[in-house]
C-alpha cells in the first residue's frame, strides 16, 4: 500500500521527494562503515523477503513494512536499504514506480529512521526483553501510521482530487499497524534474549 505507482503524483511532489530521499540516502551512506555493507545488504534482503509474506489480519491480510525494525537495526542505513528494495521491486516485478522512488523511499524510511533514532537508545538500555519488545512494538506501529500519513500527504499535495481516497487509505493502515506492532515486539524481544548485540545499529557493527 505504501508504494505509489508512476503517473499519479505531481511533478513538484516527485522532485521534492527525490531531493529528500537523496539527502537521507547520502546521510545513511556516510554513516555506514565500509565493512558493514554486507550486513546492510543481507538485512535488506531479509526485510524484502519478509515483506512478501502475507499475514492474516481480521478478514483480510497485510504485507509488513517493517520500517521501524529496519530503523532500529540499520539506523540511517534504513534509507539506502529501502531505496534498494524499492528499486529492485520495480525492476523485478514492475511494482511501485521509478519516478516515485524518492517519494516512496522517504515515506517508508523516514518514519523508520525516526523510530530508530528516538527509541533505539532507550530499547538498547532495557534489561528486560519484554519491555524492549513492547517499546519496539509501539515505535513500529507509530512508524506505520506515519508512513500512512506521509502517503496521504503525498497524494493531497499532488491534487486535491485525491483527498477522499487519501482519507480511506489512512484507515487501511490501522490493521497493518496492529500486526506490525506485535511482530516487531516479538522480533526485538527475541533478539534481546538471544543476541543483544544484534540490536546495535549497523554502522557500529564490525568496526
Amino acid at each position: 500500500m505504501a508504494h505509489i505507482p508512476d503517473g499519479i503524483l505531481s511533478l513538484p511532489v516527485l522532485i521534492g521527494g527525490g531531493a529528500l530521499a537523496a539527502v537521507g540516502v547520502g546521510l545513511g551512506l556516510r554513516a555506514l562503515d565500509d565493512r558493514a555493507i554486507p550486513r546492510v545488504a543481507l538485512l535488506a534482503a531479509v526485510f524484502f523477503a519478509a515483506s512478501l509474506v502475507s499475514i492474516p489480519v481480521g478478514p483480510s491480510s497485510v504485507h509488513l513494512l517493517l520500517s521501524g525494525l529496519m530503523g532500529l537495526l540499520l539506523g540511517m542505513g534504513v534509507f539506502p536499504a529501502v531505496l534498494v528494495a524499492l528499486a529492485l521491486q520495480a525492476v523485478l516485478f514492475g511494482f511501485g514506480g521509478l519516478t516515485t522512488l524518492g517519494v516512496n523511499t522517504v515515506n517508508i524510511a523516514l518514519p523508520g529512521a525516526m523510530a530508530g533514532l528516538v527509541l533505539g537508545p532507550v530499547i538498547r538500555r532495557q534489561v528486560r526483553p519484554v519491555v524492549a519488545g513492547a517499546l519496539a512494538g509501539i515505535g513500529s506501529a507509530l512508524a506505520v501510521l506515519a508512513t500512512g500519513g506521509a502517503v496521504a500527504l503525498s497524494l493531497w499535495l499532488s491534487s486535491s482530487d485525491y483527498v477522499p481516497v487519501a482519507r480511506v487509505l489512512l484507515a487501511t493502515y490501522l490493521p497493518l499497524a496492529l500486526a506490525e506492532a506485535v511482530v516487531a515486539a516479538v522480533v526485538v524481544g527475541f533478539l534481546a534474549r538471544v543476541e543483544p548485540g544484534a540490536l546495535r545499529p549497523v554502522a557500529a557493527a564490525g568496526a
Partner: peptide, 13 residues
C-alpha cells in the same frame, strides 16, 4: 512470524 523473522535476521547477520 515474529520468531521466524527474528531467526532470519539473526542468521543474516
Amino acid at each position: 512470524y515474529g520468531h521466524l523473522l527474528g531467526m532470519m535476521l539473526l542468521r543474516a547477520m
